[in-house]
């Protein structure tokens, strides 16, 4: 009976032409580059956004993640639905090694202090 819920989710993905296997596996501290579809007036274009993943929240259809970057000296954080049809491309630029699930401490730091160690082969 619970399979009907899965069926609905799969149909929804098929309808929108989404492929969940295209989402790379990534963790907190990884640097991601994604492309989001933006509609301006009647034109749509792909807007890139690159940043450090500081949070993953929720699960299943509701899972979301937050990317943080510092643009022109100002911290910018954007939260996306992981399964959103607006995300056209997703790639992991760099694997980071961190000891927290939520990297909120980055907000209070600038420059060198915001560096994250690159993950080794076994981490």
């Amino acid at each position: 009976m619970a399979d009907l819920v899965k069926l609905v989710e799969e149909r929804n993905r098929a309808e929108l032409g989404l492929d969940p296997t295209a989402i790379p596996s990534f963790g907190i501290g990884d640097t991601l580059r994604i492309e989001i579809e933006v509609t301006e007036g009647n034109k749509t274009r792909q807007q890139p956004f690159q940043g450090v993943c500081i949070r993953r929240a929720g699960g299943g259809q509701g899972e979301s993640f937050t990317l943080r970057r510092v643009a022109a000296g100002v911290g910018v954080e954007r939260t996306f639905a992981l399964l959103s049809p607006k995300i056209k491309k997703m790639e992991v630029v760099r694997r980071g090694k961190v000891r927290r699930a939520r990297l909120y401490y980055l907000r209070g730091k600038v420059g060198k202090a915001t560096r994250i160690k690159e993950a080794g082969r076994d981490s």
């Binding site: 009976m1 009907l4 819920v5 609905v8 259809q61 399964l83 959103s84 049809p85």
Partner: peptide, 23 residues
């Protein structure tokens, strides 16, 4: 019918809507 559960589906516009699945 019977209530099977709830989930979320996306619209083409990227909107997420809460839905209830019924058998």
């Amino acid at each position: 019918g019977r209530k099977v559960g709830m989930t979320q589906v996306f619209t083409a516009g990227g909107e997420r809507i809460p839905v209830t699945v019924l058998e």
